[in-house]
């Protein structure tokens, strides 16, 4: 089982981003995804800066570096950003929408597909593999049963990556909710999302944490945590677990998953989080409480 650091979802300051990734070099991660996936207006690091970051990290480590593209493209500027990432010439690219898939396959380059690309069945997997997809990060709402159904029906399988820890990206909009919260419109957003390095929590009127607002993106209110499902994830033929960047305490999360792959699984190391989607239930449910989940 490989461990991957997914692309960062939040808008952090340039220095903080650089420090964050430097700190990741000494962790047992195998793969690092880099790049802006949420908002084309965020400019602490532009496309060229992310490419530069990739070069610096690649020189310092033999971890695999993958560049991620924007998820929701609206303007020509967004598309140009995606073009620059796809034309990087060195590193594998994670396509987060069909624009990137098209650009990469036209260039006859291999690519991975991120969780926001709608792949729900074996026919879709096979088609994208014929175009160069080598790795597939499963949509966050797909349960283990449907995933098994897809994989069992595939003649040839890509590498399979599952979103295993962190707040799950659930939705993308034309509207910036962080700006709206501050009474601003998107064109004059003042980059207020930078004030929320782990997003802006949204709760029900009864205080139940439902979602996290992050600019144009909505994340799950609770972090998914599939640590206790580790044995089942191995059994189901998952190749890679994606851990989503957290503003703080990233190292202990990586460590907990790394222990699991060294036969030292301890679910108590991390807060329980939720696992509903993986168990084919509503995403906010927690099915396996603290103990190690056994496959059915």
């Amino acid at each position: 089982m490989q461990l991957a650091l997914g692309p960062a979802q939040y808008y952090w300051r340039r220095n903080d981003i650089n420090h964050f990734y430097e700190a990741m070099l000494s962790t047992p991660l195998d793969i690092i995804y880099l790049g802006e996936v949420v908002c084309g207006k965020r400019h602490e690091l532009r496309a060229a800066d992310w490419l530069e970051r990739a070069r610096i990290l690649a020189e310092a480590t033999d971890k695999q570096i993958v560049l991620s593209t924007l998820t929701l493209l609206e303007s020509n500027a967004d598309l140009n950003w995606v073009r620059k990432i796809c034309d990087n010439g060195n590193w594998l690219v994670e396509a987060n929408d069909m624009s990137a898939v098209q650009l990469l396959s036209e260039a006859r380059l291999p690519f991975t597909c991120g969780p926001a690309v709608n792949i729900y069945n074996h026919k879709a997997v096979e088609h994208l593999m014929s175009m160069g997809m080598v790795r597939w990060t499963v949509p966050v709402e797909m349960g283990s049963q449907q995933l098994s159904g897809v994989l069992n029906a595939c003649e040839k399988k890509p590498e399979v990556e599952v979103f295993a820890y962190g707040h799950m990206p659930l939705a993308y909009s034309a509207r910036c909710f962080t700006a709206r919260h501050h009474g601003l419109d998107k064109d004059n957003c003042a980059y207020r999302c930078m004030e929320y390095p782990h997003g802006l929590p949204l709760a029900s009127q009864e205080g139940e944490e439902l979602f996290v607002i992050n600019g144009i993106q909505t994340l799950s209110g609770e972090a998914v945590n599939l640590l206790s499902h580790y044995p089942q994830l191995c059994e189901r033929g998952i190749d890679i677990l994606r851990l989503s960047p957290q503003w703080q305490q990233m190292a202990p999360i990586i460590d907990a998953f790394d222990r699991a792959r060294r036969d030292d699984l301890d679910p108590q190391l991390l807060p329980p989080g939720v696992d509903g989607y993986w168990c084919d239930r509503p995403g906010l449910e927690l099915i396996a409480r603290s103990g190690i989940a056994t496959s059915e």
Binding site: T71, L72, A116, N118, P139, V140, E141, M168, L170, A171, Y172, S173, A174, R175, L210, F211, T218, S220, G276, Y277, D280, R281, P282, G283, L284
Partner: peptide, 17 residues
């Protein structure tokens, strides 16, 4: 208001999307 086909809010709460 979300990009259609890229919204899982419903399944996060109800299991169906």
């Amino acid at each position: 208001i979300m990009a259609e086909g890229r919204c899982h809010l419903s399944s996060y709460i109800t299991g169906e999307s």
